[in-house]
Nucleic acid binder design. Structure first.
Lengths: 161, 161
DNA sequence: TATTGTTATACTCTATAACTATA
DNA sequence: TATAGTTATAGAGTATAACAATA
Protein backbone atom coordinates (compact mmCIF):
# COMPACT_ATOMS: atom_id res chain seq x y z
CA UNK A 1 0.00 0.00 0.00
CA UNK A 2 1.09 3.54 -0.61
CA UNK A 3 -0.29 5.36 2.39
CA UNK A 4 -2.83 5.32 5.21
CA UNK A 5 -6.25 6.75 4.63
CA UNK A 6 -6.84 10.28 5.87
CA UNK A 7 -9.59 8.94 8.15
CA UNK A 8 -6.90 7.44 10.34
CA UNK A 9 -5.56 10.94 10.90
CA UNK A 10 -6.39 12.50 14.24
CA UNK A 11 -6.38 15.92 12.61
CA UNK A 12 -9.02 14.94 10.10
CA UNK A 13 -11.33 13.53 12.78
CA UNK A 14 -10.74 16.45 15.12
CA UNK A 15 -11.32 19.02 12.39
CA UNK A 16 -14.44 17.30 11.09
CA UNK A 17 -15.96 16.96 14.55
CA UNK A 18 -15.03 20.54 15.40
CA UNK A 19 -16.64 21.91 12.23
CA UNK A 20 -19.74 19.82 12.81
CA UNK A 21 -19.92 21.07 16.37
CA UNK A 22 -19.57 24.70 15.29
CA UNK A 23 -22.26 24.32 12.65
CA UNK A 24 -24.71 22.75 15.09
CA UNK A 25 -24.08 25.21 17.91
CA UNK A 26 -24.12 28.33 15.74
CA UNK A 27 -27.59 27.24 14.77
CA UNK A 28 -28.60 26.45 18.35
CA UNK A 29 -27.28 29.79 19.63
CA UNK A 30 -28.79 31.95 16.91
CA UNK A 31 -29.40 35.41 18.33
CA UNK A 32 -26.86 35.14 21.13
CA UNK A 33 -24.19 37.83 20.62
CA UNK A 34 -20.89 36.18 19.72
CA UNK A 35 -22.42 32.78 18.99
CA UNK A 36 -20.55 29.80 20.47
CA UNK A 37 -17.79 32.03 21.78
CA UNK A 38 -20.27 34.42 23.31
CA UNK A 39 -21.82 31.39 25.00
CA UNK A 40 -18.49 30.46 26.53
CA UNK A 41 -17.97 33.99 27.79
CA UNK A 42 -21.46 34.03 29.25
CA UNK A 43 -20.88 30.64 30.87
CA UNK A 44 -17.62 31.86 32.39
CA UNK A 45 -19.25 35.10 33.54
CA UNK A 46 -21.95 33.11 35.32
CA UNK A 47 -19.39 31.69 37.72
CA UNK A 48 -19.58 32.35 41.44
CA UNK A 49 -16.69 34.78 41.60
CA UNK A 50 -16.50 37.48 38.91
CA UNK A 51 -13.53 36.90 36.64
CA UNK A 52 -11.06 39.29 35.03
CA UNK A 53 -11.26 39.72 31.29
CA UNK A 54 -7.67 38.76 30.59
CA UNK A 55 -7.82 35.58 32.65
CA UNK A 56 -11.00 34.59 30.89
CA UNK A 57 -9.60 35.42 27.46
CA UNK A 58 -6.57 33.22 28.00
CA UNK A 59 -8.66 30.41 29.35
CA UNK A 60 -11.06 30.54 26.40
CA UNK A 61 -8.23 30.89 23.90
CA UNK A 62 -9.32 34.20 22.44
CA UNK A 63 -7.22 37.31 22.01
CA UNK A 64 -7.83 40.02 24.61
CA UNK A 65 -8.76 42.45 21.82
CA UNK A 66 -11.41 40.03 20.60
CA UNK A 67 -12.63 39.63 24.17
CA UNK A 68 -13.36 43.36 24.26
CA UNK A 69 -15.72 43.12 21.27
CA UNK A 70 -17.37 39.96 22.56
CA UNK A 71 -18.08 41.54 25.94
CA UNK A 72 -19.21 44.80 24.33
CA UNK A 73 -21.91 42.91 22.46
CA UNK A 74 -22.96 40.83 25.45
CA UNK A 75 -23.06 43.92 27.65
CA UNK A 76 -25.12 45.86 25.12
CA UNK A 77 -27.58 42.97 25.17
CA UNK A 78 -27.73 43.29 28.97
CA UNK A 79 -26.40 39.78 29.58
CA UNK A 80 -23.14 40.60 31.38
CA UNK A 81 -21.68 43.54 33.24
CA UNK A 82 -18.21 44.94 33.80
CA UNK A 83 -16.98 46.66 36.91
CA UNK A 84 -13.50 47.71 38.03
CA UNK A 85 -11.67 45.26 40.24
CA UNK A 86 -11.31 46.94 43.68
CA UNK A 87 -7.99 45.16 44.12
CA UNK A 88 -6.59 46.49 40.83
CA UNK A 89 -8.50 49.25 39.12
CA UNK A 90 -6.88 48.53 35.75
CA UNK A 91 -8.73 45.23 35.58
CA UNK A 92 -12.43 44.65 34.94
CA UNK A 93 -14.42 41.97 36.69
CA UNK A 94 -17.01 40.31 34.53
CA UNK A 95 -20.23 38.83 35.81
CA UNK A 96 -23.55 37.73 34.34
CA UNK A 97 -26.71 39.71 34.95
CA UNK A 98 -29.96 38.09 36.04
CA UNK A 99 -31.06 38.38 32.45
CA UNK A 100 -27.82 36.75 31.33
CA UNK A 101 -28.38 33.83 33.70
CA UNK A 102 -31.88 33.33 32.35
CA UNK A 103 -30.60 33.44 28.79
CA UNK A 104 -27.90 30.94 29.75
CA UNK A 105 -30.44 28.43 31.04
CA UNK A 106 -32.21 28.63 27.71
CA UNK A 107 -28.92 28.38 25.81
CA UNK A 108 -27.85 25.36 27.84
CA UNK A 109 -30.99 23.55 26.79
CA UNK A 110 -30.39 24.30 23.12
CA UNK A 111 -26.74 23.32 23.45
CA UNK A 112 -27.51 19.97 25.01
CA UNK A 113 -29.82 19.15 22.12
CA UNK A 114 -27.23 20.27 19.57
CA UNK A 115 -24.49 18.23 21.22
CA UNK A 116 -26.67 15.15 21.23
CA UNK A 117 -27.12 15.57 17.49
CA UNK A 118 -23.37 16.01 16.93
CA UNK A 119 -22.55 12.93 18.99
CA UNK A 120 -25.42 10.97 17.49
CA UNK A 121 -23.15 8.16 16.37
CA UNK A 122 -22.18 7.37 19.96
CA UNK A 123 -24.21 5.71 22.68
CA UNK A 124 -24.54 7.51 26.05
CA UNK A 125 -21.58 5.73 27.62
CA UNK A 126 -19.34 6.56 24.67
CA UNK A 127 -20.44 10.20 24.76
CA UNK A 128 -19.47 10.50 28.40
CA UNK A 129 -16.16 8.83 27.69
CA UNK A 130 -15.40 11.19 24.81
CA UNK A 131 -16.26 14.24 26.92
CA UNK A 132 -14.08 12.94 29.71
CA UNK A 133 -11.08 12.26 27.47
CA UNK A 134 -11.32 15.60 25.68
CA UNK A 135 -11.67 17.41 28.97
CA UNK A 136 -8.61 15.64 30.34
CA UNK A 137 -6.49 16.69 27.37
CA UNK A 138 -7.85 20.23 27.43
CA UNK A 139 -7.33 20.66 31.17
CA UNK A 140 -3.72 19.52 30.86
CA UNK A 141 -3.19 22.10 28.14
CA UNK A 142 -4.92 24.90 30.01
CA UNK A 143 -3.89 24.14 33.57
CA UNK A 144 -0.16 24.91 33.85
CA UNK A 145 -0.53 28.67 33.70
CA UNK A 146 -4.19 28.96 34.56
CA UNK A 147 -5.12 29.85 38.14
CA UNK A 148 -8.77 29.11 37.37
CA UNK A 149 -8.25 25.39 37.07
CA UNK A 150 -7.96 24.70 40.78
CA UNK A 151 -11.01 26.71 41.67
CA UNK A 152 -13.00 25.04 38.94
CA UNK A 153 -11.87 21.57 39.94
CA UNK A 154 -12.97 22.28 43.47
CA UNK A 155 -16.31 23.65 42.35
CA UNK A 156 -16.84 20.60 40.17
CA UNK A 157 -16.33 18.33 43.15
CA UNK A 158 -19.12 19.58 45.34
CA UNK A 159 -21.16 21.09 42.56
CA UNK A 160 -21.76 24.31 44.43
CA UNK A 161 -20.19 27.69 44.98
CA UNK B 1 -24.65 27.32 42.62
CA UNK B 2 -25.23 29.69 39.75
CA UNK B 3 -23.87 27.77 36.78
CA UNK B 4 -21.63 24.96 35.64
CA UNK B 5 -17.97 25.64 34.98
CA UNK B 6 -16.99 26.19 31.38
CA UNK B 7 -14.68 23.17 31.63
CA UNK B 8 -17.75 20.95 31.61
CA UNK B 9 -18.60 22.36 28.20
CA UNK B 10 -17.85 20.09 25.27
CA UNK B 11 -17.22 23.13 23.12
CA UNK B 12 -14.53 24.44 25.43
CA UNK B 13 -12.72 21.11 25.52
CA UNK B 14 -13.07 20.57 21.79
CA UNK B 15 -11.87 24.07 20.98
CA UNK B 16 -8.95 23.92 23.37
CA UNK B 17 -7.80 20.53 22.08
CA UNK B 18 -8.26 21.65 18.49
CA UNK B 19 -6.20 24.81 19.01
CA UNK B 20 -3.50 22.85 20.80
CA UNK B 21 -3.45 20.35 17.99
CA UNK B 22 -3.16 23.09 15.36
CA UNK B 23 -0.35 24.79 17.24
CA UNK B 24 1.64 21.57 17.59
CA UNK B 25 1.14 20.41 14.01
CA UNK B 26 1.82 23.77 12.39
CA UNK B 27 5.16 23.59 14.13
CA UNK B 28 5.75 19.97 13.12
CA UNK B 29 4.83 20.68 9.49
CA UNK B 30 6.86 23.86 9.12
CA UNK B 31 7.85 24.22 5.48
CA UNK B 32 5.08 22.03 4.10
CA UNK B 33 2.88 24.15 1.80
CA UNK B 34 -0.55 24.58 3.36
CA UNK B 35 0.51 23.38 6.81
CA UNK B 36 -1.87 20.92 8.48
CA UNK B 37 -4.39 21.26 5.67
CA UNK B 38 -1.72 20.74 3.05
CA UNK B 39 -0.76 17.61 4.96
CA UNK B 40 -4.31 16.29 4.72
CA UNK B 41 -4.41 16.99 0.99
CA UNK B 42 -1.08 15.24 0.54
CA UNK B 43 -2.27 12.28 2.61
CA UNK B 44 -5.43 12.02 0.51
CA UNK B 45 -3.44 12.39 -2.70
CA UNK B 46 -1.21 9.48 -1.64
CA UNK B 47 -4.14 7.10 -1.84
CA UNK B 48 -4.18 4.18 -4.24
CA UNK B 49 -6.67 5.63 -6.70
CA UNK B 50 -6.24 9.26 -7.71
CA UNK B 51 -9.06 11.38 -6.33
CA UNK B 52 -11.01 14.28 -7.81
CA UNK B 53 -10.45 17.67 -6.29
CA UNK B 54 -14.06 18.32 -5.44
CA UNK B 55 -14.56 14.97 -3.72
CA UNK B 56 -11.43 15.57 -1.70
CA UNK B 57 -12.42 19.14 -0.83
CA UNK B 58 -15.79 18.04 0.53
CA UNK B 59 -14.25 15.23 2.49
CA UNK B 60 -11.63 17.50 4.04
CA UNK B 61 -14.16 20.22 4.75
CA UNK B 62 -12.50 22.94 2.69
CA UNK B 63 -14.10 25.06 0.03
CA UNK B 64 -13.27 24.06 -3.55
CA UNK B 65 -11.79 27.53 -4.16
CA UNK B 66 -9.43 27.03 -1.23
CA UNK B 67 -8.57 23.59 -2.54
CA UNK B 68 -7.28 25.21 -5.73
CA UNK B 69 -4.77 27.34 -3.83
CA UNK B 70 -3.70 24.46 -1.60
CA UNK B 71 -3.03 22.21 -4.59
CA UNK B 72 -1.30 25.01 -6.50
CA UNK B 73 1.22 25.33 -3.70
CA UNK B 74 1.72 21.59 -3.30
CA UNK B 75 2.10 21.17 -7.06
CA UNK B 76 4.63 24.00 -7.30
CA UNK B 77 6.62 22.22 -4.60
CA UNK B 78 6.50 19.07 -6.75
CA UNK B 79 4.63 17.03 -4.14
CA UNK B 80 1.39 16.34 -6.04
CA UNK B 81 0.25 16.37 -9.64
CA UNK B 82 -3.01 17.07 -11.43
CA UNK B 83 -4.21 15.37 -14.58
CA UNK B 84 -7.55 15.41 -16.37
CA UNK B 85 -9.90 12.57 -15.54
CA UNK B 86 -10.24 10.48 -18.73
CA UNK B 87 -13.83 9.72 -17.75
CA UNK B 88 -14.74 13.41 -17.42
CA UNK B 89 -12.30 15.93 -18.72
CA UNK B 90 -13.75 18.72 -16.59
CA UNK B 91 -12.45 17.01 -13.47
CA UNK B 92 -8.83 16.75 -12.27
CA UNK B 93 -7.42 13.65 -10.65
CA UNK B 94 -4.95 14.34 -7.91
CA UNK B 95 -2.10 12.06 -6.97
CA UNK B 96 1.12 12.34 -5.00
CA UNK B 97 4.48 12.31 -6.74
CA UNK B 98 7.36 10.13 -5.58
CA UNK B 99 8.76 13.20 -3.95
CA UNK B 100 5.42 13.84 -2.28
CA UNK B 101 5.35 10.31 -0.89
CA UNK B 102 8.85 10.72 0.52
CA UNK B 103 7.86 14.05 2.10
CA UNK B 104 4.77 12.40 3.53
CA UNK B 105 6.80 9.71 5.28
CA UNK B 106 8.83 12.43 6.92
CA UNK B 107 5.71 14.41 7.78
CA UNK B 108 4.04 11.36 9.29
CA UNK B 109 6.96 10.95 11.65
CA UNK B 110 6.76 14.57 12.78
CA UNK B 111 3.00 14.33 13.14
CA UNK B 112 3.13 11.25 15.32
CA UNK B 113 5.53 13.02 17.67
CA UNK B 114 3.36 16.14 17.74
CA UNK B 115 0.21 14.14 18.43
CA UNK B 116 1.91 12.32 21.28
CA UNK B 117 2.72 15.69 22.82
CA UNK B 118 -0.85 16.94 22.39
CA UNK B 119 -2.30 13.79 23.94
CA UNK B 120 0.38 13.72 26.63
CA UNK B 121 -2.20 13.67 29.42
CA UNK B 122 -3.58 10.33 28.23
CA UNK B 123 -2.06 6.87 28.48
CA UNK B 124 -1.75 4.78 25.28
CA UNK B 125 -5.08 3.01 25.80
CA UNK B 126 -6.89 6.28 26.35
CA UNK B 127 -5.29 7.80 23.25
CA UNK B 128 -6.50 4.94 21.10
CA UNK B 129 -9.95 5.24 22.61
CA UNK B 130 -10.10 8.98 21.93
CA UNK B 131 -8.99 8.50 18.32
CA UNK B 132 -11.57 5.78 17.88
CA UNK B 133 -14.43 7.84 19.30
CA UNK B 134 -13.54 10.95 17.33
CA UNK B 135 -13.21 8.92 14.16
CA UNK B 136 -16.59 7.35 14.77
CA UNK B 137 -18.27 10.73 15.13
CA UNK B 138 -16.42 12.18 12.15
CA UNK B 139 -17.19 9.23 9.88
CA UNK B 140 -20.89 9.48 10.70
CA UNK B 141 -20.79 13.15 9.79
CA UNK B 142 -18.83 12.62 6.58
CA UNK B 143 -20.24 9.32 5.37
CA UNK B 144 -23.83 10.01 4.25
CA UNK B 145 -22.92 11.86 1.09
CA UNK B 146 -19.35 10.73 0.72
CA UNK B 147 -18.61 7.91 -1.73
CA UNK B 148 -15.05 7.68 -0.39
CA UNK B 149 -16.12 6.23 2.93
CA UNK B 150 -16.80 2.72 1.69
CA UNK B 151 -13.57 2.49 -0.25
CA UNK B 152 -11.60 3.76 2.70
CA UNK B 153 -13.30 1.43 5.13
CA UNK B 154 -12.41 -1.48 2.87
CA UNK B 155 -8.83 -0.31 2.54
CA UNK B 156 -8.55 0.02 6.30
CA UNK B 157 -9.62 -3.58 6.75
CA UNK B 158 -6.83 -5.26 4.83
CA UNK B 159 -4.40 -2.37 5.08
CA UNK B 160 -3.44 -2.58 1.43
CA UNK B 161 -4.48 -1.20 -1.91
C1' DT C 1 8.68 50.38 33.58
C1' DA C 2 5.05 46.82 33.22
C1' DT C 3 0.14 45.52 32.81
C1' DT C 4 -5.17 45.80 31.80
C1' DG C 5 -8.21 47.05 28.71
C1' DT C 6 -9.38 49.77 24.54
C1' DT C 7 -8.94 51.43 19.93
C1' DA C 8 -7.13 51.67 15.15
C1' DT C 9 -4.77 49.59 11.36
C1' DA C 10 -3.28 45.99 8.45
C1' DC C 11 -3.40 41.44 7.17
C1' DT C 12 -5.21 36.87 6.39
C1' DC C 13 -8.61 33.99 5.78
C1' DT C 14 -13.22 32.80 3.85
C1' DA C 15 -17.40 33.15 1.23
C1' DT C 16 -19.58 34.74 -2.99
C1' DA C 17 -19.95 35.33 -7.46
C1' DA C 18 -18.35 35.34 -12.21
C1' DC C 19 -15.90 32.86 -15.85
C1' DT C 20 -13.92 28.54 -18.77
C1' DA C 21 -14.19 24.18 -20.34
C1' DT C 22 -16.46 20.39 -20.55
C1' DA C 23 -20.80 17.41 -20.08
C1' DT D 1 -28.62 23.67 -18.64
C1' DA D 2 -25.53 21.82 -15.15
C1' DT D 3 -20.94 20.70 -13.21
C1' DA D 4 -15.46 20.88 -12.17
C1' DG D 5 -12.18 23.88 -11.65
C1' DT D 6 -10.32 28.59 -11.72
C1' DT D 7 -10.12 33.43 -10.85
C1' DA D 8 -11.52 37.97 -8.83
C1' DT D 9 -13.81 40.58 -5.40
C1' DA D 10 -15.73 41.66 -1.03
C1' DG D 11 -16.46 40.62 3.73
C1' DA D 12 -15.41 38.58 8.10
C1' DG D 13 -12.22 37.45 11.16
C1' DT D 14 -7.54 37.95 13.25
C1' DA D 15 -3.15 39.81 14.59
C1' DT D 16 -0.29 43.82 15.51
C1' DA D 17 0.71 47.98 17.40
C1' DA D 18 -0.33 52.20 19.69
C1' DC D 19 -2.76 54.35 23.45
C1' DA D 20 -4.87 55.51 28.28
C1' DA D 21 -5.24 54.33 32.97
C1' DT D 22 -3.24 52.17 36.74
C1' DA D 23 0.27 49.50 39.22
Amino acid sequence: MRAEAVEADLGWALGTVFRGYLRATEEALAGLPGGPRGYQVLTSAARCEPTRQLVMAQHLGVDRTVMTYLIDDLENAGLVERRPDPADRRARLLSATERGLARLVEANRAMRAAEDRVLGALDPRERDRLRELLRKVAMADAAPDNPCAVVQEAAALDGTC
